[in-house]
Computed example of a mutant assay.
Amino acid sequence: MSEQAGTAATFEMHRNHLQSVAYRMLGSLSEAEDAVQEAWLRLSRVDASSIDNMRGWLTTVVSRICLDMLRSRKARREAPMAEPTPEMSMSYTNLADPEQEAELAEAVGVALLVVLGNLNPAERITFVLHDIFAVSFGEIAPIVGKSEMATRQLASRARRRIRGAQASSEVDVPRQRDVVQAFLAAAHTGDFATLVRVLDPDVVLRDDRQAASVNVTRGAAALADQVAGRAEKAAQLALVNGAIGIIVAPRGRLRYVLQFTILNGKITEVDLISDHERVQQLELNVLID
């Protein structure tokens, strides 16, 4: 076997690991493939025999590539949401089935994908490497260009956002969760009576997908009629700015967020937010049971 063939065989041993790392960092399967391919090109240009820890070397290289891609994406104000993650035993070409994609996204956790997408590049790289792949802070620090102490702080900040630790202590989250869960369940089943019961009689829905002249729905009956039996399968509870809300992200692609105002156990306001710039301003957190 030639030296180049041997290097290629070694790289293939680590491909699934690199794809898994890159996917979680980028939230896009196609971009993850690009990052892994770039890592191979960089490996092919060096003397592989001089690398003592090939897995570590490749993980570092693909992480730096992903960091550059995330920063470039942010500079372009782009935000492609996550595509389904490839299982370790599955090839990239087996992901054409939308149902399979949805199952894979659910396996990773749609809410987690959404929250990862809202971390800044350095936070995301640090969290993925340390908390998911157990890379030491000493190894991560030079990748993100920070001191080890600063890298620890990045991970801590990202972890708080992931776990929803920034939820306001003044918010009655359990009670809100019951109300919003009842709303979502009734919207799924078409239970008009339950919808009216959890809505304030003067509830207001603002939908930024509609023209300003028609983007407001007023009244419990009107809103219940609008949503009964029409809830999307991908809708699920999440923390939105520290309060219970709903995210809709089919196959991991964030479509919109529902933000609720609840007073005295009734939903008084609902804001449907789909505009990317507005979504980026929201604090979205995974709900941990």
Rank of each mutant, 00 (worst) to 15 (best):
T194V: 12
E269A: 02
V204Q: 05
R15W: 15
L154H: 06
A107Q: 08
H276L: 11
A222N: 15
E139Q: 09
L41P: 00
Q100V: 12
F260T: 02
L129W: 03
D131R: 15
R45M: 05
V144A: 06
T261V: 07
M69D: 09
D289A: 02
N215Y: 02
G265N: 08
Q210I: 01
V61E: 08
E99G: 03
L205E: 11
A187E: 11
L95P: 01
D208R: 05
I262V: 13
G138Q: 08
V110I: 13
D34F: 01
A234Y: 07
A235S: 12
F133A: 04
V270G: 02
L239I: 10
E3T: 15
S156P: 12
T194C: 09
A111G: 04
V179K: 09
I288S: 14
A22V: 03
G242I: 06
V128Y: 02
R206F: 02
V180A: 08
N94Y: 12
T189F: 01
G219V: 09
L41E: 03
A238G: 02
E269C: 01
N264R: 14
P98G: 01
E99R: 12
R230S: 02
K266F: 04
G6E: 10
E283Y: 06
G117E: 00
T217K: 03
H14T: 00
L41W: 09
I140C: 05
N264F: 02
R152G: 12
A212K: 15
R152H: 06
I132D: 03
K266Y: 02
F192E: 13
R64M: 00
S168E: 05
K74H: 14
S50D: 05
Y23N: 14
T261C: 02
K74S: 15
Q166Y: 06
V198L: 13
M88W: 14
N120C: 10
D289I: 00
E232N: 07
Q153Y: 07
G145W: 02
P250A: 10
A234E: 04
D97P: 12
R255H: 06
A141S: 11
T261W: 14
F127I: 06
E106N: 10
E99N: 07
D207W: 07
R278C: 01
S169I: 12
L282K: 03
A150T: 12
L237W: 05
F192I: 15
L205I: 10
N264W: 04
L284C: 04
S63K: 00
Y23H: 15
A243R: 11
R24P: 00
E3Q: 15
E283G: 03
A79I: 00
A82E: 08
Y92H: 09
I273M: 08
Y23D: 14
D191E: 12
M25H: 08
N120D: 11
V173H: 12
N118P: 03
L199P: 13
E12L: 00
N53A: 05
